[in-house]
């Protein structure tokens, strides 16, 4: 079921994608405190340069300002948030309550995630909730939107019209399962996907080819995840310490070869080259730029990647 204009949510991101534009989204991590100013400052770097901003939800299981609260700050600042929600920290009652709440305040995009295990965060002894998983969360939001019903079956007064997103990791093994998991998320009701950070382009090309062959890229919009490397240390950390991350040696060698003081520049150069390829890649509808604690670099990256000015769709 769609709204009158044929859109499911009417979010800017949805309109951009459905108009056939190459989408460009960003990300913002809320602060570990009550600093609204910090959120607003970070947001200024993204304003006008991205179509929507992911607001992370206690990322890496570290307590931060609630993703809904930081999302509302963005709405007030005239940016469009993509409200992230993980299954780790709340049960189906709290989740649905938060979805109603954010929608009331103008949030129209959501990213449905499992959430990192609490073991890695600042409260390693916390009990993980996982009342529902990311697949079931997608299905729940879809039911709320399209059927106007809570998971429990009761009717919702004025159902939330959310553009539903989820993550996909093309690099986890076994590789052959990845498209099937994507297919499951589409069947559950996902409208768009933002992938794990891509460094192994060859593997990603293969993943997209399989998704194209299965007709999946016609059923949902896939935004390729890009995170520019800031240093050789970061690249090595991602390669060795971050589960499911695939950083080929060529990337590390290229950064090492950049010379002193030029590594970050090389990282941005690699990211821009990737974005150029994604623009031409069949089945890729946009890029999700995760410039981790590097929000101030987004305007420059967007400019150099040739994605500015951002289109407006009425």
């Amino acid at each position: 079921m769609s709204t009158d204009n044929g859109l499911k949510s009417g979010s800017n991101l949805e309109k951009i994608l459905k108009a056939g534009h190459f989408a460009f989204t960003g990300e913002l991590g809320p602060p570990r405190g009550t600093g609204a100013k910090e959120v607003i400052e970070k947001a200024q770097h993204l304003k006008g340069n991205v179509d929507s901003v992911n607001i992370t939800d206690n990322q890496t299981a570290v307590v931060r300002m609630a993703s809904w609260a930081a999302s509302l700050l963005l709405v007030q600042e005239g940016l469009e948030p993509n409200f992230q929600m993980v299954c780790r920290d709340r049960n189906r009652l709290a989740m649905q309550a938060d979805i109603l709440g954010v929608y009331t305040h103008g949030v129209k995009n959501m990213l449905c995630l499992s959430g990192d295990h609490a073991k890695f965060g600042d409260h390693p002894d916390a009990k993980g909730v996982f009342d529902i998983d990311s697949m079931q969360l997608i299905a729940m939001v879809k039911q709320m939107r399209d059927e106007g019903k809570f998971l429990g079956g009761a009717e919702i007064e004025h159902p939330p019209k959310i553009f539903i997103g989820a993550a996909s990791n093309p690099f986890a093994v076994p590789h052959e399962w990845r498209v099937h998991r994507l297919a499951k998320k589409i069947e559950a009701g996902v409208d768009f996907i933002q992938t794990q950070c891509i460094y192994n382009m060859e593997r990603f090309r293969q993943f997209i080819k399989e998704a194209n062959d299965m007709g999946l890229t016609e059923k949902c919009f896939i935004l390729a995840g890009v995170t520019p490397m800031k240093s050789v240390g970061m690249a090595k950390y991602m390669k060795n310490k971050v589960p499911g991350m695939d950083v080929p040696d060529e990337i590390i060698e290229r950064l090492q070869g950049a010379g002193k003081g030029k590594v970050a520049e090389e990282g941005i150069k690699i990211a821009c080259e990737q974005i150029e390829e994604f623009k031409e890649m069949k089945g890729v509808a946009g890029v999700h730029l995760m410039a981790i604690e590097w929000e101030h670099k987004v305007p420059e990256i967007a400019e150099r990647a040739g994605v500015l000015p951002r289109p407006t769709v009425e």
Binding site: D116, M135, P243
Partner: peptide, 20 residues
């Protein structure tokens, strides 16, 4: 599964092992 997922694996699957 460390998260007790019914539709796994999650993004924490790591070369056949669990992220934890």
């Amino acid at each position: 599964c460390a998260k007790g997922l019914y539709n796994g694996p999650c993004g924490g699957t790591n070369l056949g092992n669990c992220e934890i």
